[in-house]
């Protein structure tokens, strides 16, 4: 399983790297141009491009972050491995649900 977690973490990192840069650029653009919430929503509504962009984002985060947290907890705490695994699984699911909820509400 470790091998697959390792692969999943590296692949999700590769996907996340450009997405994070685009996301940050987007925020800077939206903020500096003084777009209001309503203006932003009017642009994102119905945009499949932005929807798929942020779905990919949410998915990669939901894969990447829990694996990293799992490694950290394993190294830095004496918690039982099964508890760590369970906690990270729940954490990943939470990220996924919250992320999907956020994306669906703006598209």
């Amino acid at each position: 399983m470790n091998r697959y977690l390792f692969i999943a973490q590296r692949l999700s990192a590769m996907i996340l790297a450009p997405l994070v840069i685009i996301h940050l650029g987007l925020i800077l653009y939206a903020v500096s141009d003084g777009l209001s919430g309503a203006e932003i929503l009017s642009r994102t509504h119905g945009s499949w491009a932005w929807a798929s962009f942020y779905f990919a984002f949410v998915l990669s985060v939901a894969v990447h972050a829990p694996i990293g947290i799992r490694n950290i907890l394993k190294e830095w705490t004496s918690m039982n491995q099964a508890i760590i695994n369970g906690f990270c699984l729940l954490f990943g699911l939470m990220l996924l649900l919250l992320g999907i909820r956020a994306v669906t509400s703006v598209v």
């Binding site: 470790n2 091998r3 977690l5 390792f6 490694n71 190294e75 491995q81």
Partner: peptide
């Protein structure tokens, strides 16, 4: 290779 990649193996 699989042993080297098992829990507490090279990815640590």
């Amino acid at each position: 290779f699989e042993k080297a990649f098992s829990e507490n193996g090279c990815q640590s």
